[in-house]
Design a protein around this nucleic acid. Sequence first.
DNA 1: TTAGGGTTAG
Length: 457
Amino acid sequence: MFKILSTKSLNICIASLCRVKNLKKAEAVLIDGIRVGILPDVVTYNTLIDGYCRFFGIDSGYSVLDRMKEAGLNPDVITYNTLLSCASRYRLLSRSFDLFDEMIEVGILPDVWSYNILMHCFFKLGKPDEAYKVFKDIFLRNITPAPATFNIMITGLCKNRYIDNALMLLRNLQRNGFRPELVTYNILIDGLCKSGRWRSAKGLLKEMLDFGHTPNAITYTIVMKCSFKNRMFEEGLEIFLEMKAKGYTFDGFAYCTVAGALLRTGRIKDANECMGNMFRSGIDLDMVCYNTLINLYCKEGKLDDAYNLLDEVEKMGFECDKYTHTILIDGLCKAGNVKGAQRHLKNMNMMGSGTNLVAFNCFIDGLCKLGQVDYAMQVFESLKVKDEFTYSSMVQGLCRVGRFHLAAKLLLSSIKSGMRILRSDKKAVIRCLRSSGFCDEAKKLQSKIRLAKLLYY
DNA sequence: TTAGGGTTAG
C-alpha cells in the first residue's frame, strides 16, 4: 500500500478500491486522509459516486452526492454524467432525462458524454428518431463528437433493426475521414450476423482485417455464435479452440456460447463436458454461466439439481433473472410438472420482475404438448402481447387435437399481425384439414395465406 | 464518466 501524500494520490487509491468493489476500505482511506489534512475534492466524490452507483444502485450514489454538497463541494459535469450513466445502466430512463434537465437548470453545461448517454437512453427506449435528434444537436451546438458518439449511434441503429442505416452512416463517416475502430466493426459484424446477413458480415470482417485491426475475444465470439446459428458446427468449434489457444477464454462468454449451441441442438453430453471445462478453468462465473448450467441440468432432467444450484447461487449473492425463470419453467413443463411450472410462474409474477413473454410461451407450449389444450388456450387469450412463438405453439397444439378450424384462424391472424410463420405450422394446419376431408378448405386457406402475406409483410 | 460478444421458447 502506497503512502497518501496528496489529494491526487488519495484519489488514485480510492479509485483502485472502488474498481474492486471495496467501498468500505475506500471510505476508511478517505477518513484517514482527512485526519492527516488531505482533503477530498470533486474527483474523490465523483469516484465514490461511480463506485456506489455501479455496485449498489443510483440511490447510494445520491447519498454520496449529499455528502459532497455537505462538504461544500459543488457537483460538476462529471458528477452528473456519472449519475446519468448509472440511471441508463439500471434502465431508469426517465430519471436519466430528469438528470439531464436538472444539470442544465443548475447551470452545468452538458458535454459530449452527457449527449452520448442521452442518445443511448433514447435507443434503449426504442426511439431512434429521438436519438438521431440528439446526435444532430451535438453538431448544431458545435460540440466535438467522440469516437464513442458514432459507435453509440451505430449500435443503437443495429439494435433497433436499422442495420442498413447503420451501414450507410458508417460509409458517410468514412467519406468524411472517420476511421472505424475495432469496436465499430464488432458492432456492425454482430448486427449483420444477427440479421442473417452472413455474407455482408464476412465482407466487413475482411475490410476490418485489411485496415490492420486484430480481432479480439469479442470478434471471435460474434463469429463463433454466427457459425452455430448457420449450423456450421465444426467451424464454430474450431473457432472456440482458436480462442482457447489465443487465451481468449478468460471469461464465460465463449464457454456459454458453445454450451448454449450444444444444448439447443440436443448435444447434452458435449454441453456437459464444455461446462465441466469451464469450471476447471477457474474463471469467475456470473449469472449467465449459472443460467447455462441450470439449463444443462434441466435438459438432463435433473430438476432437483437445478433448484439446488439456484439456492446456492442466490446464497452467493446473485439474483436470478428472466432467463433463469424461463429455463426453469420450460424445464418443469418438459418434465411434465405443470403444477410446478404454474407455481413458478406465479412466484415470478409476484416478484414483479416484469412481463416475461418467453416464459409464458414455454408454458403454453408445455400445456399443449401435455394435452391440456383448453388450459393453454385460456392462457393464450389472457396474454395482452403475443409473438410468433405464442401463435406457433398454439397452432401446433390445436392441430394435434384436430381443432384445425381454430388453428387456421390463429395462423391467419398471426400473419395479419405481421408475424413470420413457420413452414411447419402451415403444413400442420393444411395436413390436418386434408386428412379430415376438408380438401377445399385447405386450398382456400393456402390462397388466403398467400394473400395475407402479400398484404401484411 | 459513454459504445461491442455469451444464457430462454415454437
